[in-house]
Amino acid sequence: MQRSPDAVMLFAAGFGTRMRELTLDKPKPMIEVSGRPLIAHALELAQTIRPARIVANLHYKPEPLKALLEPEKVLISLETPEILDTGGGLRQALPLLGDGPVFTMNTDAIWKGPNPLKLAQDAWDPDRMDALLVCVPLEHAVGRTGGGDFAADAEGRINRGGNLVFGGVQIIKTDGLHQVDEQVFSLNLLWNQMAARGRLFAMEYPGRWCDVGHPEGITLAEDLIAADDV
């Protein structure tokens, strides 16, 4: 089995309910930030590392996403009749992604600084890790309310709670997906199992990051893009 990831999964199937009226006629990844759809920002980062394959899962209002992604040679995993969540969606896409670990990337965030996929690629150690999450210190997570998601020890192993925010980019081994009976499930299920084995890791992102999961995040993300500093 391949040890290093050479495929990227773009998560683009969600309903975008926190965006309210902005997603009544379009999927959330098509909402524009600084004149470009959110998913175009994510796709540019994915293409920069030159993976063998890029796959996107689609469900809600998929046609405009298909029109944007297919000319870019992105493979489509259409979830129908129901949406499968991150774990179920990733498992359905495995025939397109291939064997071995894969990158996954949320498509509703803006990164300011180094390419998070490249940083994860450089830090990946499959002998120690079953997943490596790119996390943002709480003080660098623009617009984040509430606490973080994870805390890391001196070696980078993580557990729940702490001041690290998962930024939506990771490398993950996919073999555990086949052990889940449910059709619809979150990757949190695998993370909990990996954490219990001491094989869930994080790397801290050195730049800044903005979640664009709600309308207010659009302006925050555009300000972040326009800012001179990292």
Rank of each mutant, 00 (worst) to 15 (best):
R20A: 14
A40I: 02
T80R: 08
R50S: 11
P62N: 02
Q121L: 12
A67Q: 15
T107A: 07
T48K: 11
L190S: 00
G98I: 02
A141K: 14
G98D: 00
E32K: 10
Q179H: 11
F103D: 06
E72H: 10
R197Y: 08
L68H: 09
H59F: 12
D211I: 03
F166L: 01
L43T: 07
A195W: 14
I172G: 01
V184D: 02
R128Q: 15
D181K: 10
V184S: 04
L119E: 14
F150K: 09
G148R: 14
Y60A: 08
L200F: 14
M1H: 12
G113I: 03
A40G: 12
I225G: 01
V212F: 08
P27Q: 06
L43R: 11
T145C: 03
A56H: 09
M19E: 07
W191E: 09
A12F: 05
M194Q: 10
V230E: 00
L68F: 15
V33N: 00
A7W: 14
V184R: 13
L68V: 01
A154M: 08
P95T: 00
A13K: 10
D130L: 15
E222Y: 07
Q47E: 15
G88N: 11
P215M: 06
V102F: 05
H178W: 04
L164V: 10
L119Q: 15
R53M: 04
A226Y: 03
M105D: 05
T86M: 07
L68T: 06
L90C: 03
C135D: 02
W124Y: 15
L43W: 09
G143P: 10
A56Y: 11
M129R: 08
H59D: 07
E32H: 08
Q183L: 12
V8K: 09
N163F: 08
A152N: 09
R128Y: 09
G14F: 07
E216H: 08
F185W: 08
T80M: 04
A109V: 13
I49Y: 12
V55T: 03
G113E: 06
P95S: 03
F15R: 14
M19L: 12
F201A: 02
P62Q: 05
N159W: 15
I225Q: 05
F150I: 05
P27F: 04
G148F: 13
E21F: 12
T104C: 02
V55Y: 05
D85H: 10
A154S: 15
A196C: 06
A202R: 14
A42K: 09
K173W: 01
I158W: 11
M19V: 05
N159S: 15
G161Q: 13
P5L: 04
C135K: 04
A152S: 12
P81E: 02
M129L: 08
N106W: 14
H41E: 05
E182F: 00
V230I: 08
V180E: 12
T219K: 14
F185L: 00
G113Y: 04
P62S: 01
P101G: 02
R18H: 12
V165H: 11
E155F: 10
A56K: 05
I158Y: 13
G217F: 04
A151K: 13
G207V: 02
M203H: 07
L90P: 03
P27G: 01
E204C: 09
L200P: 09
E82L: 06
V180D: 00
G217T: 11
I54L: 02
C210L: 07
V212H: 08
R91T: 01
I172H: 05
E79H: 09
L78T: 04
G143L: 02
E155Q: 14
